Computed example of a mutant assay.
Amino acid sequence: MEQIGFDFGVEAPRKLTKVSPARLATFEDCPRRYRMSYLDRPSPVRTGAWAHSTLGAVVHNALRALFDLPVVKRVPQRAMALVAEHWKDAGFEDADQAARYRARAKAWVAEYVEHNDVSVDPVGLERWVSAPVTLEPGSGPSLIIEGRADRIDQRGRELVIIDYKTGRREPDEYEARSSQALALYAVAAARTLRTPCYQVELHHVPTGTIAAAEHTEQSLKRHLQRADETAGDLRLATDTLDAGGDEDVLFPARPGRRCSWCDFRPSCAAGQEAGPAAQPWELLAP
């Protein structure tokens, strides 16, 4: 099977928009948060660190460092030591809570190494991938998708996108298949590394769950079409803002439950009115 049935042209008749999965997800979730994250200068006041983000970063960094080691050193004990080396206490309630989650994180990565094949060298760790995308035959690319994938493996003649998760909920096949981020990484990795990529996986480190999905050209194209639509809205709002448009009209707030733990809550009245502020450790996996 050859990937991908999209025309990756090099001549663009219109302004290209560079987008990452994070930028697209932020704009879809809350345009105001997108503006504050990527456009406002100086950057608005943010909250402090979140414990769940700290925990996720530590686990990601430890597993990345593990795969940088020779195969003979990729053992549970070394994985636990890497958690300790990368550990930070930012966002935790106190030293006792931080110590409990440090111990949990050590156990998670040790079990991950114990129960998964870590003897194969990935073709990418925190690898930056990028691809221009053309959806209409005969036209130039309308956007460039880019981003940094947690891990890219090669199995046989195809690539596999792997994303680590440390949150409360175990992912399933539907989540893996519906993830726009994973789909865009698959397209970009195929272009960057010139190797077909259809398989995507979510590795939930706390439980050892691996949620996998196999994409087709049609399913990848649906994700690209959605990304292209969002990128078009984003580009129009940004260009209109640059021309003097009203920032609150172009990038409206979308108040909701997530406002309780939004990084920009201190700078957003609508978010503050949506509900009480969450404690920095409330989203930790139980």
Rank of each mutant, 00 (worst) to 15 (best):
P276Y: 09
Y198E: 01
Y112C: 07
A99S: 10
D68A: 14
V200E: 03
D121T: 15
N116G: 06
A211D: 00
P31Y: 01
V71T: 13
H215M: 05
F251E: 08
Q272R: 12
C268V: 09
E158N: 14
W108T: 10
W281A: 10
R78H: 08
A274T: 01
A95N: 01
R102W: 09
A81Q: 11
A188V: 03
L250I: 01
P266M: 04
R23A: 14
W281Q: 04
V10C: 05
S178F: 02
R169I: 15
Y38L: 06
I162Q: 12
L283E: 12
E11I: 15
T216S: 15
P196H: 00
T195N: 01
K88H: 12
L250Y: 11
T134Q: 14
S142C: 11
L284V: 11
A99W: 05
D7R: 13
L236H: 15
Q97I: 03
I210G: 02
Q154R: 15
V75D: 08
N61H: 10
S139T: 15
L193D: 08
P196A: 04
A269C: 00
D153M: 11
I161F: 06
L284S: 11
E175W: 10
E111H: 08
D163G: 05
P206R: 08
F264G: 07
T240N: 11
L69H: 01
L250M: 09
C30R: 04
V58D: 09
H52C: 10
P276R: 12
F8M: 12
K73H: 14
A237Q: 12
T192R: 02
E28N: 00
A81R: 08
Y38G: 09
F251W: 01
Q97M: 14
R46G: 08
L202F: 03
Q154L: 13
V83W: 05
A149R: 02
A65P: 00
P196Q: 02
L66S: 02
P70D: 09
P286N: 09
C268T: 10
E126T: 11
A237Y: 10
E201V: 12
S219R: 04
A25I: 03
N61C: 07
S260R: 14
P206E: 06
V59G: 06
T192D: 03
R41C: 01
L241K: 05
D248W: 11
V249Y: 04
V113K: 04
L16V: 02
R155P: 02
Y101Q: 07
I144C: 08
L202I: 04
